[in-house]
Amino acid sequence: MSPLHNLSEETLILLLKKKNQQAFSYLYDNYADSLYGVVCRIVTSAEHAEEVIQDVFVKIWKHVDLFDVEKGRLYTWMINIARNAALDYRKSKGVRNELKNQPLSNIVNREEEQDRSQNERNAQADFIGFKNILDKLKPECRVLIEMAYYEGYTQQEIAQQLDIPLGTIKTRTKAAFLQLKTLLKDYR
């Protein structure tokens, strides 16, 4: 971790607004890998992920003037830009539709058999240092985070696809967050 990683968000925003090479270097050195990690989980081919992450940086760079400290955290804002750009890309390439057209049984099965994530994991072998913390969650929780966060399904869609009541989806998502919180503590 860089020695300057503790720069407060206010200082970082000031730095970014300078729009010079130091600002870019700082942004890249400290955040590129995390943001790329998010993109790679959504756009699973390295070639396409590289394309998306470039757009992400251009967007952050362009729009940092619009970022409102009152409305939230800068890091979260950047992560959301990365996530949305990657999801848009995924949608444009029809990845989502392919999945939708799979027979229902396949989708339901993946909860137990994790076949889809196995496929994705093979694809993700291209990436350096790929770690999947979510694997350590209970499968029925993991699938909810993956579908919502990395695949962009709404909770209604998830409920339909997995044939589980919406209320259960909400409770399980909450449980997933609690598990994740404990897991992340071990990594601190």
Binding site: S34, Y36, V38, R41, I53, T76, I79, K131, K181, L184
Partner: peptide, 20 residues
């Protein structure tokens, strides 16, 4: 939000050097 930031940090993936 902080938790998802931490998750992103831990699940970071090395960017190809040339991209910078």
């Amino acid at each position: 939000e902080k938790m998802l930031e931490d998750l992103a940090e831990i699940q970071a993936v090395g960017m190809p050097m040339a991209l910078k």
